[in-house]
């Protein structure tokens, strides 16, 4: 896939650009050179990684808290964020767009699977 398409897809998907500003950046893509687009891609990756790190860290901590507060809660009733968090930490430095998408999908799937 050419870099322009990759950046477009990333912008549409990512959480590190405000939804309002996504329109703006998408409308500008055609004006940028390949070098600039590569730089944009790495910036998006950097901040998306920060975001995923923050989401997983916070969710993981709060999950621990809830388990301590309500110890009778079984692990099976809670999404397995700990595993996701550990997986993320092992690939964090070289994480790709696809891997970020995969983690987010797993979070969504975990939530869907714990319907009481």
């Amino acid at each position: 896939m050419e870099i322009k398409e990759k950046v477009k897809n990333f912008i549409k998907y990512c959480g590190c650009i405000s939804e309002i500003d996504k329109y703006f950046w998408l409308s500008k893509i055609d004006e940028f050179s390949e070098d600039t687009l590569t730089q944009i891609y790495s910036i998006l990756l950097k901040y998306e990684r920060e975001l995923v790190n923050f989401e997983l860290t916070s969710i993981n901590k709060i999950q621990q808290l809830i388990l301590k507060t309500y110890p009778e809660l079984q692990d099976k009733f809670l999404p397995n964020y700990k595993e996701l968090f550990e997986d993320f930490k092992t690939i964090e430095k070289e994480i790709t767009f696809e891997q970020i998408k995969d983690i987010r999908n797993k979070i969504s799937t975990s939530l869907k699977n714990i319907q009481p």
Partner: peptide, 28 residues
């Protein structure tokens, strides 16, 4: 009910991305 609240916490956390949005825009 607790599981529902875990879901709510999850949603709240994922909405807290303002600072990162601001930094990303600045760098772009």
């Amino acid at each position: 009910q607790i599981i529902n609240r875990i879901k709510k916490i999850n949603k709240s956390i994922r909405g807290l991305d303002l600072v990162i949005e601001s930094k990303t825009f600045q760098e772009l």
